[in-house]
Structure formats: C-alpha cells, structure tokens
Nucleic acid binder design. Structure first.
Lengths: 201, 201
DNA sequence: TTGTTTATTGGACGCGGTCTAATAACGATT
DNA sequence: AATCGTTATTAGACCGCGTCCAATAAACAA
C-alpha cells in the first residue's frame, strides 16, 4: 500500500498518487467521462496496463481519499467498549472517522457527480463502497445485538446510518469553499437516525 | 411503456417481458455475469440491437419488477395532505408502495447479489435506482420543510429512509419461501428512522 | 555471471454500449 | 395498387473498459 519499502525486484516507476494527479488534471480539463485510461496512463508516463497495476478499475482513481479515511471505520468500531450503548458507539465511531478526514481533500467522485449525470462505472464504484461500509457496520451491530433484534433491524441500522453519512458527505462536498468540517455535517445527519434506533433496541 | 396501442408504424416483435423471461432462463443456467446480451437476444429471437431498444443496459433487465412498483413513490407522496406530519407522510407512502408489490416477484437484482459478489454494472444500476428514489424523497421533504431544516437534514432523511427500505428489501429477498410480505419488513426498518427525524424536525 | 523477484509492457481478446444507415412492416392516402 | 409517413428491426462498424498472457526490464543476492 505504501510507496516505500521495495527491497527486492524491479522498483516501481509510478504510484497511486502520481496516477491520481495525472487523472485529476484530465478530469478538470475534459471531465471524467471523456477521459480514457490511456490518456491517464500517458500523462503519468506509463503504459495502460500499468494503470491497472495500481487501480483495479478506472473509477477507483476517484476514491483514493475516501478509501484512505473510511478504512478506519472497522477499527473505530472495534475500539469501542461493550459498556457504551450500541447506537452511541456507532455514532461516535462514524463521527470520529469523519473528523479524521482532511478538510481540503474532496474525493473526486463527489465532485464529478454534480458535474455530469453520474456515469455508469462511477455509480458502480460508489455502491460498492456503500455496501462495503454497510457490511462493516452491519456485522458490528449484529455482533453487539445477537439474534435478539431479528434479521431486519441490524441491516436497517447499517444502511440508514451509512446512507445518512453519505448524504452528509454529498452536501459537504457541494458546499464549496467555506464549508464547515465534514464531521459537523455527518454528526447532524446521523444523530436522528441513531436516536431513532436507540429507542427501539 | 405498455405493450399495447401501437396503431401506427411497424408492430413490435418483442417486449420487455419476453426479453426478461429469456434473460431469466439464462441467469438460472449460467448466472448473470456469464450471460451476454447476445445470448439473451438470441434466445428471445431478436438481434442484439433490439435488446437495447427495450433496455438501456444489460443490467436494467434485472430491475423490471422493482421499477414498476417504485415508480409510484412520487405519486404516493404527492397524494399526502399537508396536515399530516412530514415523516408520517414519508413512512406511510413508502409502506404503501411496498405493500403494492406482488409477494411472489423478487427482482432478479436482489437474488443475483447473493449468488455472486455483485458485478460492476449490477452495482451501477443499483445505485442509480437508489439515487433516483433519494431524489424523489429528498425533494418532497425539501418542499415540505423549506429552508428551515438546513441543507443536510432533508438529504439525510432521504438517504437514510431509502437506505433502510433497501435493507429491508434485501432481507425480504433472501428470506426465501415463507417470508412475510415485503411491507412488513419495510415498515419495521424505516419506522425508527422516521421517528428519529420526526423528533428533530 | 547467473538466478530470483517484481514491475512494466505490448498485443490480443471479449463484452457492453453507441451510432448510422438500410430495410421491413404496418396504416393512411391517393 | 402504388405511394408516403411512421416506427421497429437489423447489420455493421466503432470505442473503451477490463482481462489475460508472454516477453522484457530493473533491481538484489549468491
């Protein structure tokens, strides 16, 4: 994952960051849809196949910032003690993850959605990440509650809380310069959801 | 949209239903991922281009049932009177839409997700529908609340409620034979979310 | 020098999706 | 019956994403 520590074998010629920056330039010039993988690779000075060596798909380059911060959700959840109520643990973990996101890094995916009507693979990559977070959160809630809550509620918690957080991220991204920190938006969005579930769990 | 009433021009040789049934057979035989558009068209007795004449994309064939029922959400929302509280209107509208769904029709999209790890375009089509419902619901909440609720809450309502409903649909789909009606799952999932927002709006 | 490991590269392929132009099948008009 | 307008189907070409494989290049180690 890191760019350092390659003691053996041929050294890397490029990096995720390099490719992301090359892609970012092209996205600004001609939008995401009109930018081909060949162009990104060419501007980064590597071949097309090398691009796929760093990213599994073209759209993955839109989510590097997002992926880096949201990877920590599982850790934050695991770090919560069993004495704190489930929904409080959920809310605090998500807000902490949001707070750890650098204020100036807006994932490209969120800006390009507004720019043009959300292309296919962009949506694919978005839902993949959405579902992944739901998996993480849903299994946590299921562990904490056991079978007592039935099959629906844990899933409902996961989908609605992550959904509210996604909505907050969207508003945050489109708020432009002068926006408040991401964690503020997220906290406002998920607090009612968590409160609602806390009342029935 | 309907298959009838083509008084002028060349009559249609196929229909969405025909193509969907041809696709369903192939999906059962070899899963969604391993089925090509050419195969679907061939089994339905038409050319590949004709398929795209009925569906905008391969994955759209997975959602015909879903699309048909969920198209009514906007109407249900519009039919609600201004005297009923916002979140009550939202909850009732969604439950009514869910109740109108025939119990035996499980959208292919929901079954194929379990079957194999959710292919790209399947996810793309899923998020497209998710976002569309969020648009419908979000603009309704915005109309009802005006600017008083800020920018985040209406979006948060839309995303979390639709998210909860999607979770319910997923549980419903994977519950197999003997499951309760879809509306039961949906009502259980979205009630806490609606209650949570009702407390702060 | 030789071997090992890893990264890069080129080339080919399949598939989804778009586009255009040609054609086929209908009703209506003359 | 011949013609016209309308709509559906079709063939064909094209682009771009993503995958696969074999060849090569660049490092280190023995």
């Amino acid at each position: 994952m890191n760019d350092i520590a390659h003691h053996i074998g041929r050294p890397r010629r490029s990096s995720k960051r390099t490719l992301e920056e090359a892609a970012a330039e092209l996205f600004l010039e001609q939008t995401y849809a009109r930018t081909t993988v060949d162009q990104i690779a060419a501007r980064a000075g590597v071949s097309r196949n090398t691009f796929f060596n760093y990213f599994a798909s073209k759209s993955d380059v839109l989510w590097v910032d997002f992926d880096e911060t949201v990877e920590r959700l599982a850790d934050e959840l695991a770090a919560s003690g069993a004495e704190v109520a489930v929904m409080d643990a959920v809310r605090d973990a998500i807000v902490r993850v949001a707070a750890s996101h650098p204020d100036d890094r807006v994932p490209w995916a969120l800006t390009q959605v507004d720019l043009m009507g959300t292309r296919d693979d962009l949506e694919a990559s978005g839902l993949r990440r959405f579902m992944k977070q739901c998996d993480v959160l849903g299994s946590f809630v299921l562990r904490r509650l056991g079978d007592s809550a039935g099959a629906v509620l844990p899933q409902a918690v996961a989908f609605s809380v992550i959904g509210a957080a996604a909505a907050a991220a969207g508003v945050w991204a489109s708020a432009g310069i002068g926006r408040r920190p991401l964690a503020d938006y997220v906290a406002e969005a998920i607090a009612p959801v968590c409160a609602g579930f806390a009342a029935v769990l």
